[in-house]
Write a protein that binds this DNA or RNA. Structure first.
Lengths: 223, 223
DNA sequence: ACCTGTGTTACGCGG
DNA sequence: CCGCGTAGCACAGGT
C-alpha cells in the first residue's frame, strides 16, 4: 500500500477518455496493483484502474524532468504526471483482509424467514426458497392455510417500485396453481412503493431486526 | 486530507450493519468530512461515510487506552478502533479540484455537430439543438439542402437499438414538416443496431475523435 | 471468458 | 429536498 499526495495531472483512456488538470490530489496504490486518484471530497476516486495489471506501474522521467507513472493493461491506460510530490508513504500489508461481515442482508432475511415464516402470518407454511415461476425464481413460496392458497413472497432489503414489477412478473408466470397471492417483505418499503403497491393490490410488510431473536414485523400495509 | 495506516477494527451501522475484524487497513479522511476504510485490494472502500457530517469526527480514548474515531450523522455511525498506528499523514488542500473532464460524451458530440454539421453531409444546414417533436425533443434538427427536407439527428455515445425506437418516435411525432429524414450519429453503433437500422431504413454514421480538429466520420451505413 | 444481479451503490440532474 | 437514471459503475457468483 502506497499513499502519495502530489500536484499532478492525470489522463485516462480506456472505457472512457478523461483528463484531470494540474491540481493537488492523493494517489493510492494497493498491493494488488489497483491505483486510485482521489480529490479532497467524495467517496469515489476521480480516476482508478484495477489491479489486473499487477506490477505494471512504470515510472519514467520525461525530458522536462517530470516524473510520470503509467499503468497499463490490454484495454486501458492511466498516466499520472507529477509536478510536485508533497508526501509519499509506503506500508506493508499481508494481503489477507478477513473482509466485511454484513448483517441484515436480503439473503439473511430470506434465511430467517425460511425458518420463521409465521411471523408474517401464523397461517403461513414455508414450502421452499427460490421457487421457479415461468418468469424467473421468486424468493419464497409459502402456503396460506387460512386462505387455502399459495403465496409468492419477494424479499428485499430496500423495496422500490421495481420489486412490484418483479412480483407482477412472478404472479403472471405462475402456472402451477390456479390462484396465487403475493407479498412484499423488506426492511424498508419506500413511500412511493407503498402507494404503488396499494394501487396494484399487493400487500407488504416491513421487518426490523431484533438483536435477540431475529427479525420482527414493524409495519404493514392496510388489509 | 489525512491518511492513516493502522491495525484497527471498524463497525458501521446505518444503511446496513457491518463489522470489520482486527486487521491492517488504510483510512482516508477528506476535507469534506468523507471517511473511507481501505483494504490492500480493490477500488471500493470496505467502509465509508460521506461528509455530510463535516467536522463530526470525534476522537476518544477508551478505558483500555485504545483510541477510537467516531463519525456520526443523523442516520449513520462509523466507529474505528485503533490498536496500532503505523503511519499518519496530513496534507492541506484547497478544496477546489477542477474535476474530471470527460471526452467524447454525447453532449460534446452535440456541441461539436452544432458547429460542424457539414462533416455529416456538406448540404446539411444546422437549425437547432433539442428540437421539440410531439413525442419529446430530438438532439438536432437540420435541413438537407440537397433533398430539400428537414432531418432529425439523434446523437449517442453508444447507439443500441433503443436509439432506433427513439428515432421512430421522433419521426412519428414530427408534424411541422410534411416529410422528414432521420439520422443516427454515434461513436459506436453496435452491430445489432446496424442490422436493425437497415431493416427500419434509418441511415447511421459513426464518429471518431481527431485530436486537432474534433470529430470526423469514421464509418457510415450503406446508402 | 462472459453474463447477471446486487450495492451502505455514489453521484449528478431534474422536479 | 427527493426521486430517477447513469456509471470508465465495482464486485460477487454462476455458467
Amino acid at each position: 500500500m502506497r499513499f502519495v499526495f502530489a500536484l499532478c495531472e492525470v489522463s485516462y483512456s480506456g472505457r472512457g477518455d478523461t483528463t484531470l488538470p494540474l491540481y493537488e490530489r492523493a494517489i493510492l496504490v494497493k498491493g494488488d496493483g489497483t491505483v486510485s486518484v482521489h480529490s479532497d471530497k467524495g467517496i469515489k476516486p476521480l480516476n482508478y484502474m484495477n489491479g489486473g495489471a499487477r506490477g505494471n506501474m512504470v515510472e519514467h522521467v520525461d525530458n522536462k524532468g517530470l516524473k510520470t507513472w503509467t499503468f497499463e493493461n490490454s484495454k486501458e491506460t492511466l498516466v499520472i504526471t507529477f509536478h510536485r510530490i508533497y508526501s509519499d508513504t509506503q506500508c506493508d500489508v499481508p494481503n489477507n483482509d478477513p473482509g466485511l461481515k454484513h448483517d441484515g442482508t436480503e439473503s439473511q432475511i430470506q434465511e430467517f424467514l425460511s425458518k420463521n415464516i409465521k411471523i408474517l402470518k401464523p397461517e403461513y407454511k414455508f414450502i421452499k426458497r427460490e421457487y421457479r415461476t415461468d418468469n424467473g425464481p421468486v424468493d419464497i413460496l409459502a402456503y396460506d392455510e387460512a386462505k387455502e392458497k399459495h403465496v409468492l413472497i419477494e424479499v428485499k432489503r430496500v423495496a422500490t417500485t421495481s420489486a412490484l414489477h418483479q412480483i407482477k412478473k412472478y404472479v403472471d408466470g405462475t402456472t402451477e396453481f390456479d390462484e396465487v397471492d403475493a407479498l412484499l417483505v423488506a426492511i424498508d418499503v419506500r413511500p412511493k412503493t407503498r402507494e404503488k403497491a396499494a394501487k396494484m393490490g399487493y400487500p407488504w410488510m416491513q421487518l426490523s431486526k431484533d438483536d435477540v431473536s431475529g427479525f420482527f414485523v414493524s409495519e404493514k400495509s392496510d388489509d
